[in-house]
Amino acid sequence: MPALFRPAPRLVRHLLLIVAGLFMLYPLLWMVSSSLKPEELIFREPGLVPTAVTAENYTQGWDALKHSFGYYLWNSAVITSLAVIGNLVACSLAAYAFARLEFPLKKMWFAIMLGSIMLPHHVTVVPQYIVFAKIDWINTIWPIVVPKFLATDAFFIFLMVQFIRTLPRELDEAAAIDGAGYWRTFVQVILPLCVPALATTAIFTFIWTWNDFFTQNLYLTNSDNLTVPVALRQFMDTGGDSSWGPLFAMSIISLGPIFGFFLAGQKYLVQGVATTGLK
């Protein structure tokens, strides 16, 4: 390629990415713009640029429910943080065993692990609810948090197994020669090389737990326990009068923490082997 044209492709790539980005973000932009419109204009006025701008939806939405919206954000933050820790610890432990250790019936357990991802949760929810109701966990955060510490999100086990399997075995063997046991190999050799997978797990757990309407709606019914996704639904009324303005405004606010977490986490996503300098 002639040197003359070198800068052009870079610029073109930027342009393409920006155009594609705008296209992808149109729905979000529409939501942002609608959240800034007076409520009666949202559906009467289809365009992206609001003719009248107001913060009313934000101030109103923030205080529309029993508690201020910050209260629900806090509830969600607590549950989500615990879920992230739980998944990181429990799933990486299990993944290491599946990826690196030999034990009887390994294939069977692995198949069961995969199988547990495959059953749609709508049918297990009733038996599960019965279990949690029996031990009096309804209206506590335990039905949502404890399963994470018990690695029931098999998705992440599988994810980490796949990552660990891309790591050369020589690493483990080198560690073993240095006298490291399984635990030390796991903590000092495997985990540091799995940072991208761990970051992925943390990010997804955070986002999915933050957005998980179904479980939280079922188990946290007391109006003091509600979390963000459940609180958001209160702006919706299928039979009647939905508060679209506040819904959009609060939806955008609730995107804040997950987007922030993603921004913070994504640098670890891309800081894998490349920076640790694997030979």
Partner: peptide
């Protein structure tokens, strides 16, 4: 409180669990 879309599902689950 529940939104309408999930109301009966929640009610049925609770009823089934004796709750």
């Amino acid at each position: 409180f529940s939104d309408w879309d999930s109301y009966y599902e929640k009610l049925a689950t609770k009823t089934a669990a004796g709750d």
